[in-house]
Computed example of a mutant assay.
Amino acid sequence: MSAYAHIPSLGIPRVATGQAHFLAEGPTWDSTRGILLWVDIMAGVVHTGRVLSGGAIEQVERVPFPDTAGAVAVSRAGEWLVAGTHRLYTRSVDGEITAGPELLEGAERRFNDGKPDPVGRFVVGTKGPGGEQLLQIGADGTVAVLDDDLGLSNGLAWTRDGRTLYSIDTLSRRIHARDYDPATGETGERRVFLEITDEYPDGMTIDADDHLWVALWGEGCVIRISPDGEIVGRVDVPAPHTSCPVFAGPDLDTLVITTATEGMTPDDLAAHPLSGRLFTVRTGHRGIYPNLWAGTPAALSLEETA
């Protein structure tokens, strides 16, 4: 029985896509163009789709990048910023992909989850052998280190006023919080907001009431957490490796949940045949508009690669 069985259910999700991904992650809603974006990290692919009224997701594009694709962000103009293995890539509105300078080293380390902050800086974490980082990359390409002692940097979310940053360290099972100044990018001291005792917190989003929604890898569940740190709701998913939620759709009232098949045996896949798909559910709650990336390829000193 799930450790969260006593928590009120917030709806039953439907399977929204037919394709099974190895490691679907990082969904984001492009509200300007009405398109959902998500990544399949190890395949190095960014997918786009339309969220239909019944909850299905109609695939629009499948865009490969030169290496892994840990996260994707969108600018107001429609450019994409993609976290590759050791560098950032952009894709222009006409499809041209360019690569930035190498920012990480080590064959076992790569960029992982990342999102723009309230004024458009890109905050992105790393996955590797240990001592992982959370970096803040300015619109002009300057890099600041927010953390350098993480086990696995993962989900990110800012409150509606932008004054608090939540971040997940998956391996320590901790959700951190810190004060955040959107104008300057300066942060306060990191503190433990909540420690998860069952399975591993992965991707995260926030709703219009400043409640966090956290995917629990291995649990097949997304939990809703109040600003006081109380788990107040759950969505059970028929795929154990739930990776990240986001609110999408014209009214931001459809919760999209990505899942993965990574680490699953043939017996696991037989028991959970919908693993790797995307799911949608109406929970009665709404999200907030995702932050937009404010940089440009020129500011990041990018060079054309494709």
Rank of each mutant, 00 (worst) to 15 (best):
D209V: 07
R178G: 14
C221H: 04
L194R: 04
P227A: 10
V222H: 05
Y180R: 12
P182M: 12
R190P: 01
V235R: 03
T170L: 07
E219N: 07
D228H: 14
Y200V: 11
T205E: 15
G185F: 05
V235L: 06
G188L: 00
D179R: 04
V214D: 10
T197N: 06
V232R: 03
I168N: 15
E195C: 08
T197D: 08
L194Q: 08
D228F: 06
D209L: 14
V235W: 00
M204C: 13
A239Q: 08
D236G: 03
W213P: 10
D202M: 11
I168L: 11
T184A: 02
A239T: 02
H211G: 10
S167T: 15
D207N: 06
M204P: 09
G218Y: 00
G220E: 05
P240R: 04
P240A: 02
C221A: 02
G185A: 14
T187L: 06
D169W: 13
I196C: 07
G233I: 01
L212W: 03
D207W: 13
D181T: 12
E199I: 01
R173L: 09
I168W: 15
W213M: 07
R174E: 15
V235A: 04
G233D: 02
A183C: 03
A208C: 15
D202F: 01
R190H: 12
V237L: 02
T197G: 04
A215D: 06
S172R: 12
L212E: 10
C221I: 07
T197L: 01
V192H: 09
P238W: 00
P240F: 01
Y200Q: 12
S226G: 11
V222Y: 08
H241N: 14
R174W: 15
E195A: 13
G218F: 05
S167F: 13
E189H: 03
D236N: 02
T197H: 04
R190T: 12
A239M: 00
Y180C: 12
D198H: 05
D228C: 07
D179Y: 09
A239P: 05
P182H: 12
T184F: 05
D202G: 02
V232A: 02
Y180F: 14
W217M: 00
D207V: 10
I206F: 14
L171E: 09
E230V: 04
P201Q: 11
I175W: 09
Y180D: 12
P238A: 05
A183T: 06
E219R: 04
G220Y: 06
V232S: 03
E195V: 09
I196L: 04
V222G: 11
D228P: 10
